[in-house]
């Protein structure tokens, strides 16, 4: 199992990682190894095995719809590289929100 260099380049782009040519080569080799390791499972017949959604057996963990205290704005903003006391400041975003 080997990954194409362009697959790795695409994944890097999606992860917003700017990889140099050398890094891309190294990542392609290393990621191929990891995928290859997992690919050992391919020959197994899993037709009768239910997909695993979560490693824990626990299910149905809920909380009640009861408000809890939030942080103060100052606390919320304190670790931000830049803020104006009210909002987080980031480089201009002019495109569409990616929210869906």
């Amino acid at each position: 199992m080997t990954l194409a260099r362009q697959d790795v380049a695409k994944v890097a782009k999606l992860a917003r990682l700017a990889l140099s040519t050398e890094e891309l080569d190294r990542m392609t080799a290393e990621l191929s190894q990891i995928v290859g390791f997992v690919a050992q499972l391919e020959p197994l017949d899993t037709a009768a095995v239910a997909p695993l959604a979560h490693p824990l057996e626990t299910q149905n963990v809920f909380r009640d719809d009861v408000p809890a205290p939030s942080l103060t704005t100052a606390q919320a903003l304190q670790a931000a590289p830049r803020h104006d006391g009210e909002c987080f400041l980031v480089p201009a975003v002019l495109g569409e929100s990616g929210a869906a």
């Binding site: 909380r63 719809d65 009861v66 408000p67 809890a68 205290p69 939030s70 942080l71 704005t73």
Partner: peptide, 29 residues
């Protein structure tokens, strides 16, 4: 129409001053 957010106890009330209804969960800390 809930009182609180999906995964934390912060209020969902509309129109509050910016970043007054946030906590470590919804800030992704």
């Amino acid at each position: 129409q809930t009182q609180t957010k999906l995964f934390c106890g912060c209020s969902t009330r509309f129109g509050a001053p910016p970043n007054t209804q946030v906590c470590p969960v919804c800030l992704g800390l």
